[in-house]
Design a protein around this nucleic acid. Sequence first.
DNA 1: ATTAATAATGATAATTAATACCACTTTATA
DNA 2: TATAAAGTGGTATTAATTATCATTATTAAT
Lengths: 165, 165
Amino acid sequence: MEQRIDRIKNQLHSKSYKLTPQREATVRVLLENEEDHLSAEDVYLLVKEKAPEIGLATVYRTLELLNELEIVDKINFGDGVSRYDLRKEGAAHFHHHLVCIECGTVDEIQDDLLGEVEKVVEKDWNFKIKDHRLTFHGVCHRCQNAGEESEAEKKPKKRNQVKVR
Amino acid sequence: MEQRIDRIKNQLHSKSYKLTPQREATVRVLLENEEDHLSAEDVYLLVKEKAPEIGLATVYRTLELLNELEIVDKINFGDGVSRYDLRKEGAAHFHHHLVCIECGTVDEIQDDLLGEVEKVVEKDWNFKIKDHRLTFHGVCHRCQNAGEESEAEKKPKKRNQVKVR
DNA sequence: ATTAATAATGATAATTAATACCACTTTATA
DNA sequence: TATAAAGTGGTATTAATTATCATTATTAAT
Ligand SMILES: [Zn+2]
Ligand SMILES: [Zn+2]
Ligand SMILES: [Zn+2]
Ligand SMILES: [Zn+2]
């Protein structure tokens, strides 16, 4: 945690930005809720618990800054608000999302599923890919198993529960 | 065009909705701009040219209705507005998008690039996929070739220019 | 055909996420 | 210290979307 903050501080410094107390508090909230997909408002409320004097505008500015520095990714799941997702350190690509249309849960897929697809896009469309967004909407394993809790083989191989809102 | 409208009319009727003049005018605008990615405001302005009495609320309601009936897909490219994309008739999946970070153009990929990926997601994550969104952000073929217009091999195999905004 | 119930519309108010603005404070530089 | 630059907080503003409501059009019943 502290090392992670130090590295983020260095990333800011390398671009001549400072890790002010407000920015550090915001980063800490993001780190402490790494599995979530928080809106700016969500972040604001959480940061206020520790740094009550912080302003909403500062939170927006900080999130925008972290996005520019590629420390967070901004993503929109179609519910009208932008959400901020800490980019995993060392991840070569932005992870993917599974949004459950029944319970609203968002699970993450860290695996690189798009390697082959990206080759095709770069070659056939002559498009130089810088980033991507891949989201599946459907029914999560929990909602499929509503009622029949047992059956071990229906459990997913990997999971990582996350809530939208 | 007329046949397409008839089929949409039938889709509405099958769910007990009527194809009112306002709804028809809205659908016509979508059909006439099938390659574009119009916002509700964009649609409103275009519909007004033919049906000046239409209200913005009606356009929003119609787009929402068409979305429910899966005649249009709502998509957000991260610029703060929802855009409405006519679903291609007979298409098994929602098409994909290439958003150019230099010129803002949005190209479409109609090919099914996610067949294998979806198999993996359904199996390994036990997630029942109903829909997907795949968008690549990067530099389009036009912006890459800025200056060196010739070189035929740099042209993409398929293209389908579309403008955001 | 007349009437009653229902559906749809248009104008506008309300909501809400995000940004703009500006006076004030903190930090860096000369 | 003086001066400039960067950052902040409160609030006003913007802009997309939704809610409200009186009016109009359509359908069903009598
Ligand atoms: Zn995520
Ligand atoms: Zn679920
Ligand atoms: Zn499209
Ligand atoms: Zn371009």
